[in-house]
């Protein structure tokens, strides 16, 4: 997955300690579960486990996310660790969407098999083959769910597992200081006669 266990562990722990402990227990029990998985994995030196996805499912979803916001000369959904966000969402505030993923991924696999016999998984396809499949399903509820989750994870606070190193915010030049002084933009910086 390209996500070293150690750093995952540290950001999960950061995220938990950054909120009121009582609040986390009451509202996001899945955060703790995910943190435990990650920290155990780090200590046992085995690949980190996800709270909801199997490693195989995670590969497929991450491949989809990486097509929705691809990597070019700047980081995309993969580097933003959107997959971690989605996995966590599915055990916390969006836990009732688990079945949509399970079914959607099964459906995706059969579509891959149908179009490209010999390929087992979406993640095994070439870049262009993946685009072909996604273009075909871009109006389906499953694709739009993954799209919504991918974009949300890419732009949500890094606290939630995605937008790692604020790469999403960087892409759109979003300054997250939450404390701004005018001038804010180009036009309010200019005197009226020069706008």
């Amino acid at each position: 997955m390209g996500t070293p266990g150690k750093s995952r562990r540290s950001f999960l722990i950061d995220s938990v300690s950054g909120l009121g402990g009582v609040w986390v227990l009451a509202n996001y029990p899945g955060i703790l579960a995910a943190a435990e998985y990650a920290s155990e994995a780090a200590e046992s030196d085995i690949a980190p486990e996800f709270a909801f996805f199997t490693p195989e499912q995670a590969l497929q979803v991450e491949a989809m996310a990486a097509q929705i916001i691809p990597t070019d000369d700047t980081p995309g959904a993969r580097e933003a660790r959107v997959i971690v966000f989605i996995d966590r969402a599915l055990v916390t505030f969006d836990r009732d969407r688990q079945e949509d993923y399970t079914q959607g991924l099964a459906q995706l696999e059969s579509q891959v098999n149908q179009h490209f016999p010999g390929s087992r998984e979406f993640s095994d396809l070439t870049f262009d083959q993946q685009i072909h499949i996604l273009t075909e399903i871009e109006d389906t509820p499953f694709f739009n769910l993954v799209r919504t989750h991918t974009i949300t994870g890419f732009f949500a606070s890094p606290l939630h597992g995605g937008n790692h190193d604020k790469v999403g915010w960087r892409l759109v030049s979003y300054d997250d200081s939450l404390d701004h002084e005018p001038p804010f933009g180009y036009y309010d910086a200019l005197p009226l006669n020069r706008r």
């Binding site: 005018p182 001038p183 804010f184 933009g185 180009y186 036009y187 309010d188 910086a189 200019l190 009226l192 706008r195």
Partner: peptide
């Protein structure tokens, strides 16, 4: 509140 760029464009 300070005028934002959208407000400045309103003036234009």
């Amino acid at each position: 509140v300070p005028m934002k760029s959208s407000g400045a464009l309103f003036e234009v």
